[in-house]
Amino acid sequence: MSKQQEREKKRKRQQIIRTAILAVLGIAIVYTIVANVTKDEDIVEVGDTAPDFELVDLEGNTHKLSDYRGEGVFLNFWGTWCGPCKKEMPHMEKYYNEFEDQGVNILAVNISESDLKVQSFANTYGLTFPIVIDKTNSVRDAYNVRPLPTTFLVGPDGKVKKIIETEMSEQEIKTYMESIMPS
């Protein structure tokens, strides 16, 4: 091999090394910036697998999210004091009865209130879907729920399809339930 060729080879190698170093540094910096700028965003995002949890409902039955795999879950975080929750709960009850047989479940997660308060709320509004109480806030933290109500639509594959951080109208609830119906 001539000296010229050898030098050309060396230069090519140097090119590759330089490109690699700049690429690694560049990616690290871009990642850092993106991660920092979006730091305060939701922990759970659309497309993620919904974090599994297990909570006990008012009847004493344990509900584990992953047990609902294969069916849609309408996961609603709420509180008895929250006005919009009071408005949307009766609509949820109506469509729960309609969609329960078609593989769409409702899990209403109350944020650490007393059993009596939650029970009286359920009685007042005649709610029949399972209501679980997150006494330690651990599920709220796992989903990083901020405003109430917040609803996560979990598809039959266990993935989050949509996150709704506002009150939902009757029509919206129906559409959302249809969207997570197993095909």
């Binding site: 170093i21 700049l22 540094l25 560049g26 690290a28 910096i29 850092t32 910036i33």
Partner: peptide
């Protein structure tokens, strides 16, 4: 973002 970019550029500069 631009401050982080500057610090990142300083990092590249140091390496290079």
């Amino acid at each position: 973002w631009w401050f982080m970019t500057l610090v990142g550029m300083l990092g590249i500069s140091l390496v290079v």
